[in-house]
Amino acid sequence: MSRTTALRPFAARKRPGRGLIVGLVIIGLVILLRAFAPEAPADTLADTVRDFVTLSISVVIESLPFVFLGIVLSIVVQIWLPEGFLLRRLPKNPAARRVVLSLLGMLLPVCECGNVPLARGLIAKGLTVGESMTFLFAAPILNPVTIITTQQAFGWDSGILVWRIAGGFLIANLIGYIYSRHPKPESLLTPRFQDACALGDHHDAADGKIKRSAGLFTKETSAMLPALFIGAGLAGLIQTAVSREVLVTLGSSPVWSVLALMALAFVVSICSNVDAFFILSFGATFMPGAIVAFLVFGPMIDIKMLALLRTTFTAKTLVQLTLIVALCSAALGLAINYAV
């Protein structure tokens, strides 16, 4: 398929205030639509369809504030912080840079959905693709909220928290290292995101920061939200189609328990900040290695996350990343099951 990219001359400027009126009218219409919508549950829908809608909406309502937070942080990094404020402070040595980046989540405790827009902002400001991956995969695990909730759920003694932190750190740095060796790292990005990064260098400095922030908000929401809604729909669909009971019956096998909980993590797409509470109740059924595999694999790769990552990385890259993370998580889980 041919692809053309061009800078198109603008024809006419919008009159001041006209856009605001259009926006307020649209918001008013949406509020009216909601006000006149029925309040009673729709009995005409089959239970399975109703639950599909409820589950999908649940993913959207839960994830949307984190995506907004990530976009706001991305705007701060790209527009409001002084040029090079973050990147200038990173070590020059590539390995040390990745180590520091994998700890950036300690300062910016956003869950995985919010990290995607933030990582896009960091790439646009000059972070390499491999470094952005290290940040993306480490930050959901190596952040204070996740560490505290995991500690509350499992304590220190079980070792699960330590394995989770160590596993997340090592896998994220391994991926960063692997992709830092790529001869053409820009080819790992979608063409559209490459273009957006290229244009990022041509920001009209004459525009005020507020106006540029508003422009970046429209661009980032246009990239992220369709992906979020698709991911939410897929997560809802698979949840209504796949019985969770099947997975639970596999809990006592050292091998199958690891694979089952990784599959569960992929399907459930739960936020890394609270996944420890969710998996806690599986503790009696599943082996510790399976719990660790769930807690390491889930924050990095799940249905919703893949949909969000697809805004930035090519499908081939995402297949590779999924395989690497899955193999490493499974190896970690199996090692714990057999060695501990």
Partner: peptide, 11 residues
């Protein structure tokens, strides 16, 4: 931010 976008993002 949405309101600001409609008000400020121009052609």
């Amino acid at each position: 931010l949405v309101v600001a976008a409609f008000a400020l993002v121009t052609a």
